[in-house]
Structures are given as C-alpha cells and as structure tokens.
Design a binder for these strands. Structure first.
Lengths: 136, 136
DNA sequence: TTATATGTAACTTTGATTGTTACATAATAT
DNA sequence: ATATTATGTAACAATCAAAGTTACATATAA
C-alpha cells in the first residue's frame, strides 16, 4: 500500500533549515529530497499557512523558520500536512442499515481511534529540537 | 490516500457466513460486496490458507467457516490478509548516513510501533462472535 | 533591467489495487 | 456419461490518488 513520506521528509528539511540559518531555496530542497521544486513548494506552503516557515522571493530568497524548533512538535507538522486518518485500513459504507456492517465498523473504528489518539499524543510530546540534538 | 477495506468487508462476510450456515458462493459474496467474484476468491483464499474458511467446488459449493466465530479474532483476520504496516505514514530511506534522517525516522517509528502494538493488542481481544451479537 | 526566487494552474506520469477475461480443474445432479 | 455449477489462477486492463512536470505569472534584489 502506498505511503505518504511527506512528514518524514519535511521534518528532515526543517531540522536542516535550522542548522543553516539562512534561507534555503525550493531547488536545493528538491535536490536534497530527490524530488521536484514544485512538489517542495506545495508541501512547504502548508507549513507556511500554519506559520511555521516563511518564504521570500528573489535573490537570497527561499524558505526559513519563523519559530524555534523547541516550539514546534511532530503533531504540529503532522496536522499542518492535513492528512486525514493515519491508517491504511478503511471502513465500508455500503450497507449502512446492516447491523453487522455497523458492528464491524464500530469495532474497527474504536480501536483505530484509540491507536490514533495515542499516536497524536506522542507526536505532541516531541519537539523538533530533539531531532537535531542527536546530531551531536 | 487510498484505503484497504478488505478487512472490513471480509469480517462482514464472515459473520454473515455463520448466519446462513451453508456455503456461500463467490458470486453471491461479490454481489453483496459490490465487487467481482475473482476479487472475492483472492481475498478468501488468504483466509483459507490460514485455516479459517474452506472452499468446496461444484453444486452447492462455496465458502464456509471451519471454526466457530468465538475462536477467530480481528487480529487473526488482519494478519491473514498479510497487510504489512497499518499506517499511511512512511519513512524515508535516502540518507541513511544522515543523523537527522535517522533521528526523524527513529522518532516516527517508535511512536508508530507503540500505536500499532496497541491496535493489534485490541484486535486480538475481539472475537468475531461479538460482531454478530449486536445483531439481536 | 537582468537574474533569481516563489505561486500556482494545468497536465502527465507513476504505482498499487481493483476489476475483468479466459480457461483449467473439480464436484455434483440428472 | 455429461451438463452444470463451482473454485483456481494467470494475464491483462482500468482506476485513482499522489507525485512529477511544464509553463507562465509575480515579486525581489543585485
């Protein structure tokens, strides 16, 4: 099943952004991530919308952080990417008046919600500076 | 992001199988699930490989349970489907010698593993008969 | 005013699942 | 016996969302 690696990638980029201090262009990031500058802009734009980074045009332009890494959590970035539901498991919606389908969906949903809540809670406890710390 | 609804669908089918008692053909199941008999066979074959159902050919043939629903858990069926990793979130593997990528991956993986373990634990606690019970 | 950036719409490609066709094999009813 | 009803499965086509690409507009700085 297909995976969304934007979170992993963008976290990587954000920590590097902090290291270099000056703006990094979409082209440089694309090179670093083996992808395309437009794809980078698309993803980074979501973070800008939430106020975690800013973009500047023209010479010496590019992307830079607007907050210290200590004030950004994995949860913040996860939410900024706007991915709904973290599971590959999907529910069906074709016999909504069938009690068995409903029971199946309820059972699956309860468990997935519990697992997702735990995941989001943990993500909320991890700030990005921690990811750079292990660097040293 | 695309979802895999085989688990939801096959659970639905298994509970109905118990209700009818006699074998149900792939064609009937396909009709019920708004899909194709070959797709049904593909999925059901995975359950047969693990001994949860059997298939019989010819007249009055079809699929039937080989175990009481009380002896099958959501986890059993989930595992039988062979889906690896329940998350849409993927890790990157392009800078394995970059300490930042490693730190990002480790952080994400630890959290995902914890959430997945909780999910599998809960799945293991739910037997399929429970899904039929709510029927009454 | 030229070079360097981002912004974004429109389109193409990719990749994995699902769906389909075709035919082989097996079991049962008549 | 043999016609009918099933599954088994290989090979191929369709689908669909994400990623990638192209093209051009806009903004900023040297």
């Amino acid at each position: 099943m297909r995976k969304d690696s934007r979170l992993s990638r963008v976290l990587h980029v954000l920590v590097h952004l902090k290291m270099t201090e000056k703006p990094v262009t979409s082209d440089k990031m694309a090179e670093m991530l083996f992808t395309n500058p437009v794809v980078v802009r698309r993803t980074m734009a979501l973070l800008r919308d939430q106020g975690y980074v800013q973009s500047t045009k023209g010479h010496n332009g590019g992307w830079s952080l607007t907050k210290p890494l200590t004030e950004i959590t994995l949860l913040d970035i996860h939410k900024a990417l706007g991915e709904t539901s973290v599971f590959t498991i999907g529910l069906t919606d074709e016999h909504t008046n069938c009690p068995i389908e409903r029971a199946v969906n309820t059972a699956l949903k309860d468990v997935m919600d519990e697992a997702e809540n735990l995941m989001l809670k943990r993500f909320g406890e991890i700030t990005l500076d921690i990811l750079g710390k292990e660097f040293k």
